[in-house]
Computed example of a mutant assay.
Amino acid sequence: MTEDMALRVVPRPMRKQVEEGLRNAIMNGRFAPGQHLPDRMLCELFGASRSVVREAVRLLEAEGLVTTIPNRGPFVSFLSPAEAEQVYEVRGVLEALAGEGFALRASAAERAELRRIYEALAALPPRGADQAVLLGLKRDFYEVLMRGSRNPLVGRMFETIINRNTQLRATSLSDPGRLPDTVAEIRRVVEAIEARDAAGAWEACRAHVRSAAAVALRILREREQEARAAPSAARP
Rank of each mutant, 00 (worst) to 15 (best):
V209G: 06
N163C: 15
L217I: 13
E185Y: 10
L7V: 07
I69C: 13
Q131Y: 15
R228C: 09
R164W: 09
E3A: 04
G128W: 11
A112P: 01
R235S: 08
R111H: 05
N28D: 15
A129F: 04
G155N: 11
F31V: 15
I186V: 11
R105S: 05
G101N: 05
R8E: 02
M5D: 03
P236L: 02
A32T: 10
P231N: 02
A62F: 06
A184R: 15
A192V: 03
V53N: 04
P70M: 01
A120Y: 00
Y142S: 06
T67I: 04
V18H: 05
A123S: 11
T182V: 10
E191C: 08
A198Q: 03
L7T: 08
A98S: 08
S49F: 05
D197M: 06
R164N: 06
L65M: 12
Q17I: 04
R221W: 08
V215Y: 04
R50L: 12
L65W: 01
A229M: 10
F75E: 01
N28E: 12
P180N: 00
R105C: 02
Q86R: 14
R210Q: 13
M5I: 13
P125M: 07
D181V: 03
P231L: 04
E113G: 02
N24S: 10
V9H: 10
L173I: 03
L137G: 11
T160Q: 14
A129V: 10
R8S: 07
R164M: 13
V93D: 14
A122P: 01
E110I: 04
D175E: 06
A120L: 12
R40E: 13
P33F: 09
F141S: 12
E185W: 14
S211K: 08
Y118N: 06
V183K: 12
L7A: 09
P126H: 14
P33A: 12
V189R: 00
M27V: 15
A106T: 02
P13M: 10
I161S: 05
A48L: 03
R40P: 13
A230Q: 10
R218A: 12
A233K: 11
E44L: 06
R50V: 12
R105K: 04
R147D: 15
L94Y: 01
G47L: 03
S172F: 15
Y142K: 11
F75T: 13
E19F: 03
T171F: 03
A129E: 05
R187G: 05
L121T: 13
R156T: 07
D175C: 07
S80F: 08
R54P: 05
S51Q: 13
G21H: 04
L45I: 08
S51T: 12
A48P: 00
E191Q: 09
R196Q: 07
M1Q: 06
V133C: 09
A201I: 03
I161T: 07
K138P: 02
R91N: 10
E19Y: 02
R8N: 06
Q17Y: 02
R228N: 03
V154T: 04
V209E: 07
M14D: 05
R111E: 05
F75M: 09
E159N: 14
L37K: 07
E20R: 11
A214I: 08
E119Y: 14
E19W: 00
S172T: 15
R30A: 09
P176W: 01
R228W: 13
E143F: 09
R58E: 09
